[in-house]
């Protein structure tokens, strides 16, 4: 049966696509420009459960960990930098957690890159675990305009 999906109002198309499963969303991105735009729009990251930043395990590195909410792939985070990312999925193939560790001189680009992809996002819980002045300064810029429900900016536990 052919479905002339695009005959429906856009809001309803998005409502239908909302119920498409993870693999279906990936496939829809390959169908055409319009379906890719719809999926990418729906998969925007608007809520981060937990964001943790600290000095990395290795000297002169920074580490960031994002715990995501929702059942959709985080397409918004695609970029060259994502090649470095390690991510964890749940049993449904849902992305739940993303970790990245980069050299100190790359942290600025990393944070700018992430920030550009979450223009409007709520961070439920933020832990910033570093005394490094550069990181403090970068994170202040990063958080500008974002909603943070709970934050802990002065933790000196070991990463």
């Amino acid at each position: 049966m052919a479905i002339e999906l695009l005959e429906l109002p856009f809001e309803m198309v998005t409502e239908i696509v909302n119920h498409v499963d993870y693999k279906g969303l990936l496939a829809l991105r390959e169908v055409c420009q319009l379906t890719k735009e719809i999926v990418d729009e729906l998969c925007k990251i608007t809520f981060i459960h937990h964001l943790y930043f600290a000095n990395g395990r290795l000297y002169n590195t920074g580490s960031i960990c994002l715990t995501l909410d929702g059942s959709r792939p985080p397409f918004a985070l695609y970029s060259d930098i994502t090649k470095e990312w390690v991510w964890t999925v749940d049993t449904k193939g849902t992305c739940k957690k993303i970790d990245v560790s980069v050299q100190k001189e790359q942290v600025s680009n990393l944070l700018e890159d992430i920030r550009s992809k979450i223009p409007q996002c709520t961070i439920d819980s933020l832990v910033f675990n570093s005394q490094d002045e550069l990181y403090v300064s970068l994170f202040e810029s990063f958080l500008e305009g974002l909603t943070v429900n709970k934050s802990c900016l002065d933790v000196y536990t070991e990463w």
């Binding site: 999906l5 909302n18 496939a27 390959e30 169908v31 055409c32 379906t35």
Partner: peptide, 24 residues
Amino acid sequence: CKTLANKINGKTVEEMREILQLEC
């Protein structure tokens, strides 16, 4: 909406193009 989504779920990209009558 779930009924329509179920007609999309599990289909290949080519099958989706056919079902949705969309050109690449």
